[in-house]
Amino acid sequence: MKRFHVHVSVKDLTQSIGFYSKLFGADPSVIKQDYAKWMLEDPRINFAISQRGHAVGLNHLGFQVDSEPELKELREQVALADIAALEQTGAACCYAKSDKYWVEDPQGIAWETFHSLGSIPVFGEDEAEQVADSACCVPLAQQPMDKPAAACCVPNEKPAASKATACCG
């Protein structure tokens, strides 16, 4: 079963946790110094916020799936539609290890489709000394192309251009 995923970059994490907890009528299932996540059942959504020095607002959207076969099915759907995708296996991101792939819509919004393999004790591979400069969880269009790609969240590189469309190239 799929779960819709939204990740928002926020200015003040504590204030935002208070707001979204009241809005959702539930406390976050994960709270870290720079991140919080709600795994809601109604509506079925993985809603995450982070305060990591990036532009405030929508960071990326996506779908979380419950199994590797579901991930493969959605990836094949994207491939059949000739939508360029960037795959990441065993990515360390947002306090979780996941297999995932990324696409970019015509507006430049990054979409992540992922299957979580387990939790990890750190945000990702962009540890403390790199946090301010990290490309982690930043939409592709907003990332500085002169910085190295982090393995965490939205990658620096764009998906390879597809044959049928230039929307992601």
Rank of each mutant, 00 (worst) to 15 (best):
Q64N: 14
I120V: 12
L13R: 02
V6L: 03
F47I: 03
S134P: 05
E104F: 05
A91P: 02
G118K: 11
I109K: 03
Y101E: 03
A36K: 01
P69G: 08
E157A: 13
G169K: 01
R44P: 12
C168K: 09
V8K: 01
E104H: 01
Y20I: 03
H5S: 07
E41C: 06
A161R: 14
S16V: 03
V8Y: 10
A96V: 15
K72V: 14
A96S: 15
A161K: 15
D126C: 15
D12W: 05
A110S: 15
A55H: 07
S67L: 14
L23K: 03
A91I: 04
L74V: 02
G53E: 01
A151E: 13
A26K: 10
S16P: 01
K2W: 07
A85D: 09
T113E: 01
C167P: 00
Q142T: 00
P155M: 15
D34L: 03
V30Y: 09
S9Y: 00
V138E: 14
A84F: 00
E87V: 15
P69L: 08
I17S: 05
A150Q: 13
P106R: 03
V6G: 01
Q64R: 15
Q88K: 14
A161G: 15
N156H: 09
M145I: 08
Q143M: 07
L80H: 07
E125F: 05
K32F: 04
D66I: 08
A92P: 00
N156S: 12
C153F: 08
K11H: 02
H5T: 10
E73H: 13
V78F: 09
